[in-house]
Amino acid sequence: MKYAMVFNSQLCIGCQSCSIACRSENKVPDGLYRLRVKIQGPKGLFPNLIFDFERFSCQMCEDAPCVSVCPTHASFIDENGIIDIDSDKCVGCLYCIGACPYNARFLDTKTKIPNKCNFCKNTHLKNYGEPACVSVCPTSALIFGDLNNPKDPIYDVLNNHNYVRRKEHLGTKPKLFIIPNKKGEISYE
């Protein structure tokens, strides 16, 4: 398997259900986040106001800087393409936090181990087949699937929508695909 996620910002309503489910499922300490949805706006003039929604989380890069800088191999990519952390191997150097170009990692104040989204691989994904954020999204703005399976619904979404990947120019090959809420030219730094 090669797990990936699509964030369709055209369907997102900014309800924060995904962030709440993530915090609850993964026992994320207050003030820290595995995922956030930033809301920008409103833009335009009443009654034609729009908001932009942007998801910030691990991009599940295929060529992950956070993995390559880890001196103990505590940060690794598993057999399903999920970037994870082996807390038994971590020495707390925090190189992975500094190397992530997406600012998706944080130091867990309770465990003193770097933390990040891992698609709820040991909890919700293992028990229900999808991350907690996907299961609670009321508008189906999040699609999770296997890029190695042409029959997976994620395939249809990627084949029928324009999408971008954040900071793709860095060569990290992120597997979080974003369907932007914009018309015309699309650019992400």
Rank of each mutant, 00 (worst) to 15 (best):
1 M>Y: 00
1 M>P: 02
2 K>Q: 13
2 K>L: 11
3 Y>P: 00
5 M>N: 02
7 F>Q: 04
9 S>K: 07
11 L>F: 12
11 L>T: 01
12 C>A: 10
16 Q>M: 15
18 C>A: 13
18 C>I: 13
21 A>F: 07
23 R>V: 11
25 E>A: 15
26 N>C: 11
27 K>C: 04
31 G>C: 05
32 L>G: 00
34 R>C: 02
34 R>T: 01
34 R>Y: 08
35 L>M: 15
35 L>S: 09
36 R>T: 12
38 K>W: 10
39 I>W: 01
41 G>H: 10
41 G>Y: 09
42 P>T: 05
46 F>H: 14
48 N>R: 15
49 L>G: 11
49 L>P: 07
49 L>W: 13
50 I>D: 08
51 F>I: 03
51 F>V: 04
52 D>R: 14
56 F>M: 13
56 F>V: 14
57 S>H: 05
59 Q>N: 15
59 Q>W: 01
60 M>H: 15
61 C>L: 10
61 C>I: 08
62 E>G: 14
62 E>M: 11
62 E>L: 10
64 A>G: 02
64 A>N: 07
65 P>Y: 10
66 C>L: 08
66 C>D: 03
67 V>H: 05
67 V>E: 08
68 S>H: 13
70 C>P: 03
71 P>W: 09
71 P>Q: 11
72 T>L: 03
73 H>I: 00
77 I>M: 12
77 I>F: 00
78 D>I: 02
83 I>A: 04
83 I>C: 01
87 S>W: 05
88 D>M: 09
88 D>F: 05
89 K>P: 03
89 K>W: 03
95 Y>R: 13
96 C>Q: 10
97 I>T: 07
97 I>N: 03
97 I>A: 01
97 I>E: 04
98 G>F: 12
100 C>K: 08
100 C>T: 09
105 R>H: 13
105 R>S: 05
106 F>P: 05
106 F>G: 06
108 D>C: 07
109 T>W: 00
109 T>P: 03
110 K>A: 07
111 T>K: 13
111 T>V: 06
113 I>M: 09
113 I>P: 04
113 I>D: 04
113 I>Q: 06
114 P>G: 07
115 N>P: 02
117 C>L: 10
118 N>L: 04
119 F>M: 15
119 F>T: 03
123 T>K: 13
124 H>E: 12
128 Y>G: 01
129 G>T: 09
129 G>E: 08
132 A>W: 09
132 A>G: 10
133 C>V: 11
134 V>F: 08
135 S>R: 14
135 S>L: 09
137 C>S: 05
137 C>K: 07
137 C>H: 07
140 S>C: 02
142 L>I: 06
143 I>S: 03
145 G>H: 03
146 D>E: 02
147 L>D: 00
147 L>V: 02
148 N>Y: 02
148 N>V: 00
149 N>M: 02
149 N>E: 09
153 P>N: 10
154 I>G: 02
155 Y>M: 03
160 N>R: 07
162 N>W: 00
163 Y>D: 01
164 V>E: 10
165 R>L: 09
165 R>E: 10
168 E>W: 04
168 E>Y: 09
169 H>M: 06
169 H>T: 06
169 H>F: 14
173 K>A: 11
173 K>F: 12
174 P>I: 08
178 I>R: 01
178 I>G: 00
180 P>N: 06
181 N>Y: 04
181 N>R: 12
182 K>S: 12
183 K>L: 11
183 K>G: 08
184 G>F: 04
188 Y>M: 13
188 Y>R: 14
